[in-house]
Design a protein around this nucleic acid. Structure first.
Length: 236
DNA sequence: CGTGTTTGACCGGCGC
DNA sequence: GCGCCGGTCAAACACG
């Protein structure tokens, strides 16, 4: 068992695992950075709203109707299609200054007069992710039969406030009312609970059940979980 | 031929 | 006032 081949295979396996973890870490770092930026924007907006309230001004509620989700896709797939259970009609596409990838504009047409729009753009730093920004609230229910399974084959991270849509796989990383350090703790807490086999948290089990449907996510997560368990329990 | 997508033109907001 | 940029419109085009 201690043959050179066995050692070589072990090194290769560890290198592959390390590479996998590095990619995972890059993606998580990117999301964290985005969340931090979002938090700063939201915090400034919150401060403005509070000062407006003190001055007796009415605060518009429109700001709370925007959400942003990260969707893991095939990096080679340029379609910018996010299956979220709603029916969207593309009405425009633009190249923006801050991102060489085109931004696509969609309107919801599942119900007449539905005001919801979304913008979909490939993430500038992590090409395997697209960022979908939802604007407005649906005036109708989701039709799961209309557009295939909603988001079940993709990995979703929702770093901001959520609107009334139904992601199957959503890590609620709502930033409002918390600080960045708390979000870091929440993120690591989710990963920790994920790695603990004796958890009684039903929602985590639901997450696992949903995420295991995605082979890519399962593969990457399994490596991360294994690494996490080793770190937590070096004796084992 | 009907429906959905593409893409250039246009418009309005914002910063300088 | 001007220019830049993001968002929207609508005619042309593609496809079933």
């Amino acid at each position: 068992m201690d043959s050179p081949n066995y050692g070589k295979q072990k090194v290769e396996a560890l290198q592959a695992e390390l590479e996998c973890l590095q990619k995972e870490n890059e993606a998580l770092g990117l999301m964290l950075e985005t969340m931090s930026r979002k938090y700063n924007v939201l915090h400034q907006a919150y401060i403005r709203q509070e000062s407006d309230k003190r001055l007796g001004h009415e605060v518009p509620a429109a700001a709370s109707k925007t959400s942003q989700v990260f969707v893991k896709t095939d990096p080679g797939d340029q379609s910018l299609i996010v299956k979220d259970g709603f029916q969207w009609r593309k009405y425009g596409q633009k190249i923006t200054k801050d991102n060489p990838s085109p931004r696509a504009y969609f309107k919801c047409f599942m119900a007449p007069g539905c005001p919801v729009k979304k913008k979909v753009q490939r993430c500038v730093e992590e090409k395997s992710y697209v960022v979908a920004t939802y604007d407005g609230q649906h005036n109708h229910d989701i039709d799961s039969t209309a557009a295939g399974q909603p988001l079940s084959s993709t990995s979703i991270f929702s770093p901001t406030t959520s609107v009334a849509f139904r992601p199957t796989v959503t890590l609620d990383l709502n930033l409002s009312g918390s600080d960045v350090l708390q979000d870091r703790r929440n993120l690591s807490s989710v990963m920790h609970e994920y790695s603990s086999s004796n958890t009684n948290n039903k929602s985590i089990e639901d997450y696992v059940a949903s995420l295991t449907k995605d082979p890519n996510f399962t593969l990457a997560l399994a490596a991360a979980v294994a690494r996490s368990i080793k770190t937590e329990q070096p004796d084992n």
